[in-house]
Design a protein around this nucleic acid. Structure first.
Lengths: 218, 218
DNA sequence: AATAATTTTTAGATTTATCTAAAAATTATT
DNA sequence: AATAATTTTTAGATAAATCTAAAAATTATT
């Protein structure tokens, strides 16, 4: 049987390895898990024995097929629960993470397949992240960071990079939600801040904000 | 912070103490928790240190006010989740227990109050057990065991004592559900089996079955 | 009331996940 | 290429929850 801790390590390794990183380092995992490198080494050995990761001393780890399946299933559960919380229980998108972190570990195939159906098979969570299907397939959409959009582009907001409560509340305050249409009007060379137009209202956005908002050119 | 194990012990002590038993014995807890008496002693000391129970060596334990509140909150969560599973996710009443055992430990006040509202403030779970309200108040209905009903009584099924899958499936098979109306026709003195009539159909029920079905005289 | 049976506790060991401190290996810098 | 800095691992310790086996206390029986 897989433990809660093992699941959390596997999830952390999955997230760290997501963007083409082949061998996830011990220190990176330690940072992500808010624990010590020595603890990570111990756990990584255990995960390796259980064939969830491939591990060679001093070389970091990679998830095995088995490990990847577990990770994707946790992600699927996390995101489905987030949809449930927002759509059915009136949570706002900045409140769901903590609860979903707990709910993602509930073990019941029927629960998840029924929840999926109840939510009418959503494809994305409240932050715009894709929900893996029952088979673990993830459909990715071609989104870019707002900071990468060009002057004059008409965009539609489709996701966030940072899903911290602080960032999400900033977006709420400025009436930016998923689905919001905006136009990139101007980029300030000095600090890379950009001016965007939402409907008729202009808004200046720092580069840091633009670096955490995904858009699709429409 | 309270651990999962502590919560489960508190819940067990609550259930064992429910029917007027003041001091719950170590062995009773061990049986309920499927563990050894020595483990129980250890845990009971810990629960006592944390003021969840009153404990005197060799005298068993009683929940403190604090312990009782925790127990009732777990019961509330368990039963609300059971309603959710049956009403929204199409689980049958014999499938919900295991999943609810996991869900009952999720920590989020907002989650439970919103779930309660989403389910339209149910008062009873799918097995007829009352759901404590936000304040921990439990409204009990005057139900009796079918085995205690008298010949000629018109009854309505309102709950089950045993909520094992086997028993619930037996009831399903014989078209007995909560809300089902039945009449007690005859009691066989030899084995205390009783003949009941549901609509026009007669059915003979063993004393063991009658001992696990709650009814209200109508 | 003495003895037997049962229940409960204690003592000491085990497993899981963690830690600190030191050693070993790798990577970066001069 | 030697040394310094960093990363990773090892060794040994700790805390939580459990176990077995033996001792102590309680309860039941003769």
């Amino acid at each position: 049987m897989i433990t809660l801790t093992e699941e959390n390590y596997i999830k952390a390794i999955y997230h760290l390895g997501k963007y083409g990183v082949n061998n996830v380092s011990t220190n990176a995992i330690a940072k992500e898990m808010e624990t010590k490198a020595s603890s990570v080494t111990d756990m990584v050995k255990k995960l390796s024995e259980k064939s969830y990761v491939d591990y060679k001393k001093y070389q970091g780890v990679t998830l095995t097929q088995k490990g990847k399946e577990i990770a994707i299933n946790i992600v699927r559960k996390h995101r489905l629960w987030e949809v449930f919380l927002v759509e059915k229980l009136n949570f706002s998108w900045d409140e769901v993470h903590e609860v979903a972190e707990q709910l993602e570990h509930i073990k019941s195939k029927k629960l998840i397949s029924q929840l999926d159906a109840f939510l009418e098979f959503p494809t994305h969570d409240p932050h715009g992240d894709p929900i893996p299907d029952k088979m673990g397939h993830i459909k990715k959409i071609d989104k870019i960071l707002l900071s990468e959009a060009e002057i004059g582009n008409d965009c539609i907001c489709v996701g966030v990079q940072d899903s911290s409560s602080e960032f999400l509340k900033y977006l709420d305050k400025n009436n930016i939600a998923l689905g919001t249409e905006l136009k990139v009007c101007h980029r300030e060379a000095f600090d890379n801040s950009i001016t965007i137009k939402i409907k008729t209202k202009e808004l200046i956005i720092s580069n840091m904000i633009a670096n955490n908002l995904f858009v699709k050119i429409s």
